[in-house]
Design a binder for these strands. Sequence first.
DNA 1: GATGAATGAGTTTTCATTCAT
DNA 2: CATGAATGAAAACTCATTCAT
Lengths: 214, 214, 214, 214
Amino acid sequence: MGFSRARTNEQKQKRIEEVMCATARLYDTVPYEEITFAAIAKEAGFARSNLYIYFTSKEEILLEILVSDLSSWYQNVEASFHVRRSYALEEVMEVWTDALIKNERNLSLLSILFTVLEKNVTVEALTKFKEGLLTVQQKCYQLLQGLFPTASDDALQQFLVSAFALAQGLYPMTRLSEVQLEAIENCTLGYVPPTFRDSYLKACIQLAQGLFVK
Amino acid sequence: MGFSRARTNEQKQKRIEEVMCATARLYDTVPYEEITFAAIAKEAGFARSNLYIYFTSKEEILLEILVSDLSSWYQNVEASFHVRRSYALEEVMEVWTDALIKNERNLSLLSILFTVLEKNVTVEALTKFKEGLLTVQQKCYQLLQGLFPTASDDALQQFLVSAFALAQGLYPMTRLSEVQLEAIENCTLGYVPPTFRDSYLKACIQLAQGLFVK
Amino acid sequence: MGFSRARTNEQKQKRIEEVMCATARLYDTVPYEEITFAAIAKEAGFARSNLYIYFTSKEEILLEILVSDLSSWYQNVEASFHVRRSYALEEVMEVWTDALIKNERNLSLLSILFTVLEKNVTVEALTKFKEGLLTVQQKCYQLLQGLFPTASDDALQQFLVSAFALAQGLYPMTRLSEVQLEAIENCTLGYVPPTFRDSYLKACIQLAQGLFVK
Amino acid sequence: MGFSRARTNEQKQKRIEEVMCATARLYDTVPYEEITFAAIAKEAGFARSNLYIYFTSKEEILLEILVSDLSSWYQNVEASFHVRRSYALEEVMEVWTDALIKNERNLSLLSILFTVLEKNVTVEALTKFKEGLLTVQQKCYQLLQGLFPTASDDALQQFLVSAFALAQGLYPMTRLSEVQLEAIENCTLGYVPPTFRDSYLKACIQLAQGLFVK
DNA sequence: GATGAATGAGTTTTCATTCAT
DNA sequence: CATGAATGAAAACTCATTCAT
């Protein structure tokens, strides 16, 4: 009962997804350090040692989740532009931003991508991830190229890098834990944490101006 | 007795600095997870249990180091502008950027500030840190106000947030480990990692344009 | 049906030999503890669980290998004496020793036979092995009897036991790992590890003197 | 209650001895693979993690035990010869053999010294052990030199190596487990396991003849 | 105040073995 | 017969933390 063996490739794929789901659920509920193979196994409902068949570290799993999140984010963005007409810069940036906000886990994972996830992973796993990441990045590039045909290649690249870096840096400033909020309240100097949508949108519009400079 | 207490406090302060130095040294040489109370104690040359008198977690120590790094960064920036004359936006941004680059540990710590450091620390320690952080931030604000007197408060705040977020997000994209570099090389799609100075400077100049919009 | 069973038995025998070969290859290349059912299965190229049909522990496999090694060693020795003439004691011992040296794995397995292999094996497997071992031993006895017709039964038995025990004890003293060699070098007291051929030959000649005592 | 902290060096030494005793007790009662840090800790009555302060592997502990056993064996042998007179070869060998038999654990550890213990140990630990081993070996050498003044250096060395190798190889042939005994009984060919004292003594006397050859 | 021995909890990892297919 | 996913158990090891001195 309860547990059928993963025999065919599809079943195996299903197992992998079960692990990813369990990990994602954990990621949404407990702090990062509490995500261990033990916790994932418990959440997924199978033996810890069984996980080793599919993954070799939690970072590997999280990278897999991130690729999937990024892909669906991109599809979201792309879908918003299928109509054949030209868009104002502000419109484009709003779509871009709102698609990001739609999947918070995506933003959250991006925030620790280079500092945590990529630092604790084998070359093989990272190569696989990068392949996926660069694919999305390239699609973004082509999409922007279509939307802003007058922009130079360099400017587009520069925008992409800045827009991602900004998202990665800004997001954790705007999603604060209880402890962080309390600490801010305790401060004598006033501080109002930024809102992601507002700050990111404004900054992106500003950065996007660079696309139209000769 | 008053004298004795002062002497004790001095000694205490000296101890604290020794711990910070040792931790900073470790941070510069070993990966983050390898910084443990055991390692710090060994590096500082005294008993592990002794550390508990001064700090309760490694994050607390790193926050302390970060405040100090940020302060000296700000002093660097400020010192560059003591002359009484007006500066071009590009000039200001270059100084700002180059001062950041001067202390890489500062950038590195900022990159994990909100995602790692602030998440594993007591309210008390975080409050103390935030107090220091906000002080520096306010000084930055005032400095920029002096340099760009026509900019609105909101625009200045928005710039500050974006500029910091960008630094935090961009830096780890540009300082890659061996594994990261190897993974990139393995990829079929080409990818050239951005340079911090170049990308950051360009983006900041772009962001700073927002200071002059009505 | 009888044919089919025969065919099955042949296949089974082939499988067994594949396992033995794979294990022997492993034994020659990796340290003992790294020889696991997982490693053997991988080396042999079939499923781990499949091994359980043929063997129940790695020691069982190694015992099988050892019997085979011992047999071929004995054949080697015997073949050297097929000529109808009498041999000097020294000559006999040289042949005996050189045949041993020819198959190092044999010596290596003998060195752990009583201490490791026989301690981790079922009675059934051990019985089967002992049967093979005693057969070889008896042939040795008869060969020596032929070569030294004046020697008493007791003396021959005593010689055989000593000669084997000596080989088992001496061999590991002469095949040292990197770590062992380094440790020896580090010692303040000088130590030159013995050479197997030289030490064994001399000792055997000495032991064989006992064959001619009344 | 029950457990005072090891503060002074003597107390620390006492702890080390407690660990060694516990390990020795285990060695006498359970098969080798069952001697783990967990088992030793349980036997010694302290926390497993505490063991890591004193030792880093069970082999290290067993080597320590072996040095101690060897030393007491040597003292035993030496003490038997304090009288100022000359001894017959047979007498010497009897003393030598009986001293060996007195400490069975010594013989048992020697039997796995080169094949098991020395293979799973750090260079540092092994160096320390070898230092001790060579010291005993040298004393043996000098003792034999005194007893057999006409023997050449080479012959003495050769004898020592052979005598030790023989002990190491012979002992496990004579101390058989239940399983081993049962397997022998099951065999169609008869086999009577040798007795250590008898076989070793005879072989040693034979080997010692080599001391008087020019 | 400083020390370092001692602890307990926890994680990672691997193995032999089973069992459904 | 053969497979390989799944399991449970256990080993090695490390860390933060406490506590007697």
